[in-house]
């Protein structure tokens, strides 16, 4: 595996009780955004879960240099109904470094003292995507990051992805063609 590659997937077949997706191959170099595309149920999220160890890898290889940490935003991460933690505490917990992305966006800065369980669905989504992006991890996995985001939130996300450093790479699952068109360097068809 060459040094600037963050992730190399070769002939991967992944699933749970049995393989659901693959064989699939792709490589993600630093500085790129790679988008997994495919119909509903094609297995895009299963590929993401295979990368985090939630889904089983039946065949093929997933190679990530030992020094490359990953940060991930799963598709579904509902907040507990009651959680007395502030946005500020959440960002600290996630080891988020907002200065890496030009500081905390205004729409999140005004929420810093709020409890997480008082956020709207869109605010929570924007917060967790932002926290994922500004962690000190070279490899970033985002599964449907535009869910619940309004147009301003999507525009902010495009700007954040374009502002990532050349040492970082993003593996993305998304159905929104406009958004994908703005951020993708590579497209990989799944299924």
């Amino acid at each position: 595996m060459t040094e600037h590659l963050l992730l190399q997937v070769t002939d991967l077949q992944a699933g749970y009780q049995r393989p659901l997706v693959g064989p699939l191959s792709f490589t993600l170099p630093a500085g790129q955004v790679l988008v997994l595309q495919g119909a509903n149920g094609a297995g895009k999220s299963t590929v993401m879960r295979a990368l985090t160890g939630e889904a089983r890898c039946f065949a093929g290889r997933i190679e990530r240099p030992a020094s490359v940490r990953l940060a991930c935003q799963p598709q579904h991460s509902p907040l507990p109904a009651e959680l007395p933690m502030t946005v500020r505490e959440y960002l600290r917990l996630a080891q988020a470094q907002p200065h890496r992305l030009g500081g905390l966006p205004d729409r999140l800065a005004s929420l810093q003292g709020h409890r997480l369980d008082h956020l709207s669905g869109g605010q929570w989504q924007l917060l967790r995507v932002f926290a994922t992006l500004c962690q000190p991890a070279p490899l970033i996995l985002l599964d449907e990051p535009t869910n619940n985001l309004d147009p301003d939130g999507e525009a902010l996300l495009v700007a954040l992805l374009k502002g990532l450093g050349p040492d970082r790479g993003v593996l993305l699952v998304c159905h929104e063609a406009d958004f994908v068109g703005h951020v993708a360097h590579q497209l990989v068809e799944v299924g």
Partner: peptide
């Protein structure tokens, strides 16, 4: 972190 950033620590 397990609650709010699921799977990440395990993956690392």
């Amino acid at each position: 972190r397990l609650t709010l950033l699921p799977h990440q620590d395990q993956a690392n």
